[in-house]
């Protein structure tokens, strides 16, 4: 599984959120749009995590049903994959989100 230690991945994601906050703040030059780097980073982290959590959940459920249909079709014994599918989708989506936000915020 990608990032066996989930807290490590979440810590990496938080660090990436802090970097994204820096670039977002440069684009949103307004007072009090996000109060302070810690809270700002936490807001970015929460948004990325929440959105990708929902998407990953949806993807993993769809994937699980497709997988079970596949196993039934080919008469294979299905394994328990929901958690792995969810975590894999979540991590990949987080990376994609971070990349998209970064590329958008550094575009002039």
């Amino acid at each position: 599984m990608f990032y066996t230690y989930k807290p490590v991945f979440l810590a990496v994601l938080y660090c990436m959120s802090a970097l994204l906050y820096y670039f977002i703040n440069k684009q949103l030059i307004l007072t009090d749009i996000m109060a302070g780097p810690l809270i700002g980073s936490a807001v970015v982290f929460a948004v990325i995590a929440a959105v990708n959590f929902a998407l990953a959940l949806l993807i993993s459920v769809v994937f699980r049903y497709c997988y079970f249909a596949w196993c039934k079709l080919f008469k294979i014994k299905p394994k328990r994959i929901l958690l792995k599918a969810f975590w894999g989708a979540f991590t990949v989506l987080c990376y994609i989100s971070a990349a998209v936000i970064f590329l958008k915020m550094t575009q002039y």
């Binding site: 599984m1 990608f2 990032y3 066996t4 230690y5 490590v8 991945f9």
Partner: peptide, 10 residues
């Protein structure tokens, strides 16, 4: 841990 190493490299 192979997974951890691969994840870190990625």
């Amino acid at each position: 841990d192979k997974n951890f190493v691969i994840s870190a490299i990625i």
